[in-house]
């Protein structure tokens, strides 16, 4: 038997015999899910932070990221992208049980409500129509779009959290981790809006970023420890991240660039008595964004299924 034929024979037999990685959402076309999920966090986080600080340019950037980057990439991943509409009412009522369907609905509602909010918040439009007409609409749609942005930012966590076969994902903290990481990314990007001359305060963004980074360090540590207690397979996932094939992305991308570098620059700025120098801020923003990609990569890559067989169900 040739080597190739032996290998093919073995692949069939080895299926789910040992802890097995999920591949659909990280390998080959699955890379699109990684990218889409990252932009989901970036866009939703930026929108929420912009709502909080009242930055129209931030809102616009967050909305553009969700509508023109996240959604198209996500839909392009589908095997039948043109059937996209079939995931929504009246064609499907799956939103009652499926977080995927809910996520699509959140995204669509966010796109529409956010658009209205952006139009009624646009300074030239407000001058033209009048603040007394625009402001109520702007704030009403702001609340509605904000709620949907929250849904967009958190649904990915619930999607993964639901998967019982992957103990590393099946943790209650995952949606919170993903949501707060998204908000931290939002603080990173709002700094970029401020630096680009937008209507956002860089010092305020730096302060927010500092707190969120601290919270995220605690969350990631708690998540890893609690997941490690849940099962042997989850321990394997952690080993994969800490000392396995994904260690470079975990330590280099998530911990160093995503957490240490932005936190270091932020603390440096604090010591200097204001905001850090522009090149340092640009470095922090870039590191933040790379960290966002690294976090999603690590979560998706560490998705390992428990084996099928009772004999080794210790996993």
């Amino acid at each position: 038997m040739s080597r190739m034929a032996t290998r093919q024979w073995m692949i069939t037999h080895e299926w789910m015999v040992k802890p097995m990685h999920q591949r659909e959402w990280i390998e080959r076309r699955g890379i699109m899910i990684w990218i889409a999920e990252t932009f989901t966090s970036l866009g939703a986080g930026l929108y929420l932070v912009s709502l909080f600080v009242g930055s129209w340019w931030g809102l616009l950037a967050g909305w553009v990221i969700i509508v023109f980057i996240k959604l198209p990439i996500h839909i392009a991943y589908f095997g039948k992208p043109w059937r996209f509409y079939q995931t929504m009412p009246p064609w499907s009522n799956a939103w009652k049980t499926s977080w995927f369907a809910r996520g699509i609905l959140f995204s669509v509602f966010f796109s529409m409500l956010g658009f209205v909010q952006l139009v009624f918040g646009q300074p030239d439009f407000v001058n033209l129509v009048g603040a007394n007409i625009c402001n109520p609409i702007y704030y009403t749609f702001g609340v509605l779009a904000g709620l949907n942005a929250l849904g967009v930012g958190i649904y990915g966590g619930f999607i993964m959290n639901y998967v019982k076969g992957i103990p590393f994902w099946n943790q209650g903290l995952l949606p919170v981790l993903i949501m707060l990481a998204g908000v931290a990314d939002g603080f990173g990007l709002i700094m970029a809006v401020g630096l680009a001359g937008g209507d956002a305060s860089v010092i305020w963004a730096e302060t927010g970023s500092r707190y969120l980074l601290l919270i995220n360090v605690l969350l990631i540590t708690t998540y890893m420890i609690s997941a490690g207690y849940s099962s042997e397979t989850a321990k394997l996932s952690i080993k994969e991240l800490v000392a396995g094939p994904s260690a470079f992305m975990f330590w280099g991308g998530l911990i160093l660039l995503g957490l240490i570098v932005p936190a270091g620059i932020s603390i440096f700025g604090l010591i200097e008595g204001g905001e850090a120098a522009t090149p340092l801020l640009i470095t922090a923003i870039a590191a933040h964004t790379i960290g966002a990609f690294a976090l999603k990569y690590c979560i998706l890559r560490a998705g390992i299924y428990r084996p099928l067989l009772p004999k080794i169900s210790a996993f």
């Binding site: 097995m20 659909e24 589908f78 095997g79 996209f84 639901y162």
Partner: peptide, 22 residues
């Protein structure tokens, strides 16, 4: 005729008994 090919069912099946047909 209704499947959109999102593969969430493949991910969610703890027994991994589904296959995406490409």
């Amino acid at each position: 005729d209704k499947c959109v090919g999102c593969r969430y069912c493949i991910i969610a099946c703890p027994y991994q008994n589904r296959t995406f047909f490409s």
